[in-house]
Computed example of a mutant assay.
Amino acid sequence: MAMLEVKNLGISFGGLRAVDGFEMQIEKGQLYGLIGPNGAGKTTVFNMLTGVYKPDDGSIVLDGKDITGKKTIDINKAGIARTFQNIRLFKDQSVLDNVKVGLHNHHTYSTLTGILRLPKYFKVEAEMNKKAMELLKVFDLEDEADYLASNLPYGKQRKLEIARALATEPKLLLLDEPAAGMNPNETKELMDTIRFVRDEFDMTILLIEHDMKLVSGICEKLTVLNFGQVLASGNTSDVLNNPQVIKAYLGE
């Protein structure tokens, strides 16, 4: 059974068909890329997968469960987490607290328990602190746990965003242009991080990316979008050498 199966997905905005007949199948443990020129509809697909947009047509099935049109919070609890092209950390909170935000899906206490500081509050907070520090250690961020997120270098902010997403214990991790704004050395380190996350967490990963060196270096399969429709899909090397794909990126 596929980890993610998308069939005939479509959405329109004001009469404009932004995505039409989109299909994708990702197996458990795959590193999969979604690429295409600017404005092709890639982020719109991500927004439908995560419940930001409700599709007009089609279905989204995650690990055998139909999540089509569900709310963002319910989709996250079902097992999809994402990062964003423009980093969205809580920059005035500590590195540790940013990761703890993601842990609240699985570590909870009531508002009253928190206000009154009942024993369960301290128990759950201790559990979250421990788990958050374990995640930060994976990304070599444990020494910066008390830093404000805004004080981290750019590459480490990217790592923190991935760590926070992993804190929700997803089955599928969506990375939206994770290499955006990175220099070559940071991009190489990011590639190693993504591979590590896939292997260490037994994670299935879908990413949008414009850096073709990163895409060709880590993605096993690709789907190419152009004007909201699938242009090509298959093994990475085959897709990147497809004349239609080259034309879509480079023009006539």
Score class of each variant (00 low, 15 high):
Met1Cys: 12
Met1Arg: 12
Ala2Leu: 10
Leu4Ile: 10
Glu5Met: 09
Val6His: 01
Leu9Lys: 05
Gly10Pro: 08
Ser12His: 13
Leu16Arg: 15
Asp20Ala: 10
Gly21Asp: 14
Phe22Thr: 03
Glu27Ile: 04
Glu27Val: 05
Lys28Pro: 05
Leu34Ser: 02
Leu34Tyr: 04
Pro37Asp: 00
Asn38Phe: 00
Gly39Phe: 08
Lys42Ser: 00
Lys42His: 04
Val45Met: 06
Val45Ser: 08
Phe46Lys: 10
Phe46Met: 03
Gly51Ser: 02
Gly58Gln: 08
Gly58Val: 07
Gly58Pro: 09
Gly58Glu: 03
Ser59Pro: 09
Ile60Lys: 00
Ile60Val: 12
Val61Leu: 04
Leu62Ile: 11
Asp63Tyr: 07
Thr72Cys: 10
Ile73Cys: 15
Asn76Thr: 14
Arg82Glu: 03
Ile87Lys: 01
Lys91Glu: 13
Asp92Leu: 14
Ser94Gln: 11
Ser94Ile: 06
Ser94Arg: 11
Leu96Tyr: 06
Asn98Ala: 04
Asn98Cys: 05
Val99Met: 01
Val99Gly: 02
Val99Gln: 03
Gly102Tyr: 01
Gly102Phe: 01
Leu103Val: 05
Asn105Ala: 15
Asn105Arg: 14
Asn105Ile: 08
Thr108Trp: 11
Leu112Phe: 12
Thr113Arg: 13
Lys123Ser: 13
Val124Tyr: 02
Val124Ala: 02
Glu125Val: 10
Glu127Tyr: 10
Glu127Trp: 12
Met128Val: 06
Met128Asn: 02
Asn129Leu: 05
Asn129Lys: 13
Lys131Asp: 09
Ala132Asp: 03
Met133Arg: 14
Leu135Cys: 10
Lys137Met: 08
Val138Ile: 15
Glu142Trp: 07
Asp143Met: 13
Ala145Tyr: 14
Leu148Gln: 12
Leu148Tyr: 14
Ala149Tyr: 06
Ala149Gln: 09
Gln157Met: 05
Lys159Tyr: 11
Leu160Lys: 06
Glu161Trp: 04
Ala163Asp: 07
Ala163Glu: 07
Arg164Asp: 00
Ala165Ser: 11
Ala165Lys: 01
Ala167Trp: 08
Lys171His: 11
Leu173Met: 07
Leu174Gly: 02
Asp176Trp: 02
Glu177Thr: 01
Ala179His: 02
Met182Lys: 10
Met182Ser: 08
Pro184Ala: 00
Asn185Ala: 15
Asn185Ser: 15
Glu186Ile: 09
Thr187Leu: 01
Lys188Asp: 09
Glu189Leu: 11
Met191Asp: 03
Thr193Pro: 07
Thr193Ile: 15
Thr193Gly: 04
Arg198Gly: 11
Glu200Arg: 13
Phe201Pro: 07
Met203Val: 07
Met203His: 05
Thr204Tyr: 04
Leu207Gly: 03
Leu207Lys: 05
Ile208Phe: 01
Ile208Glu: 00
Glu209Lys: 10
Glu209Asn: 11
Met212Val: 07
Lys213Thr: 14
Leu214Ile: 06
Val215Glu: 00
Ser216Gln: 15
Gly217Ala: 12
Gly217Lys: 06
Ile218Trp: 01
Ile218Asp: 00
Cys219Ser: 12
Cys219Lys: 05
Lys221Ala: 05
Thr223Ser: 12
Thr223Gly: 09
Thr223Cys: 08
Asn226Arg: 04
Phe227Trp: 12
Gly228Phe: 00
Gln229Trp: 09
Gln229Glu: 15
Val230Tyr: 03
Leu231Ser: 09
Asp238Lys: 15
Asp238Arg: 14
Asn241Leu: 08
Asn241Ser: 11
Gln244His: 13
Val245Trp: 04
Ile246Trp: 07
Lys247Asn: 11
Lys247Trp: 10
Lys247Phe: 07
Glu252His: 13
